Simulated assay, not measured.
Amino acid sequence: MFIGTKEAASLLNISTQRVRLLIKEGRIQGARKINGRTWVIPLYKGMPRVSRKKRGPNPRWHSCRHCGKNTIHFDRPNIAVNKKKKNTDLHVLSAKRGTKTLAKGHEIEIHGPCKIVYRPDRPHSCGATVWIETLATATMFNFDGKIKQVDSRWIEE
């Protein structure tokens, strides 16, 4: 998964300017520019990989983790009811962080990278075998026109 400089700064608990300086020095492994303007940084085990300098003090990166990736679940029973009864307004998508449901709706727009996961042998805690994981902010839409923003939040370990 790839993230931008703002998310990397949040993970490392440093400023975005410091992240750009580390990229300029070539110390963030795998960082590259896309579209001639935007930096993308790969994650290794949930963190950017930063190489150390030969001299000077050891870096003091604060290890942070995402507080339960935003996961988007598909509600199969509601899909079946909507198909059977035609024109019911049951929500078929839900955005969750950990066990907390953040938003429900019919359409979602993810503003960044995401990953679709299929694990029949190791289902999600709620029993789902297919879901979408993302570290990015998402927007959930309902039939009644309500819009709910699902933000990406980071916490320290």
Rank of each mutant, 00 (worst) to 15 (best):
M1H: 07
I3F: 02
G4V: 09
K6G: 10
E7L: 07
E7F: 01
L11N: 10
L11T: 06
L12N: 11
N13V: 10
T16C: 03
Q17I: 05
V19M: 01
R20W: 03
L21N: 15
L21K: 15
L22R: 03
I23Q: 07
K24V: 01
E25H: 09
I28F: 09
A31F: 00
A31R: 08
I34R: 00
N35W: 01
N35M: 11
G36P: 05
G36Q: 07
R37L: 09
W39R: 06
W39V: 11
P42A: 07
L43Q: 10
Y44L: 12
Y44P: 09
Y44K: 14
Y44F: 14
Y44E: 13
G46C: 06
M47W: 02
P48I: 03
S51N: 14
S51R: 14
R52N: 14
K54W: 01
K54D: 04
R55M: 15
G56P: 04
N58W: 12
P59C: 03
H62T: 13
S63H: 10
R65F: 06
G68P: 04
K69T: 11
I72H: 02
I72V: 15
H73A: 10
H73L: 15
H73K: 02
D75P: 03
R76S: 14
P77Q: 07
I79R: 15
A80W: 06
V81C: 03
V81G: 03
K83N: 15
K83E: 15
K83Q: 13
K84W: 04
K85R: 11
K85M: 09
N87G: 01
T88L: 09
T88M: 08
D89Q: 02
H91W: 03
H91Y: 10
V92H: 08
L93E: 03
S94P: 10
A95F: 07
A95C: 08
K96I: 05
G98P: 05
G98D: 10
T99Y: 08
A103W: 01
A103P: 13
A103L: 08
K104T: 14
G105C: 07
G105E: 15
H106S: 12
H106G: 08
H106P: 01
E107P: 00
I108H: 09
E109D: 05
E109W: 06
H111F: 10
C114H: 12
K115R: 08
Y118V: 11
Y118A: 13
R119A: 15
P120I: 00
P120A: 10
P120K: 12
D121I: 00
R122Y: 14
P123L: 03
H124R: 09
H124S: 08
H124P: 07
S125C: 04
C126Y: 05
W131H: 01
I132Y: 04
T134G: 01
T137P: 04
T139F: 00
M140D: 12
F141V: 06
F141L: 05
F141R: 03
N142D: 14
N142R: 00
N142L: 05
F143A: 12
F143W: 13
G145A: 02
G145T: 02
G145E: 08
K148E: 15
Q149I: 12
Q149T: 13
V150E: 02
V150L: 03
D151P: 11
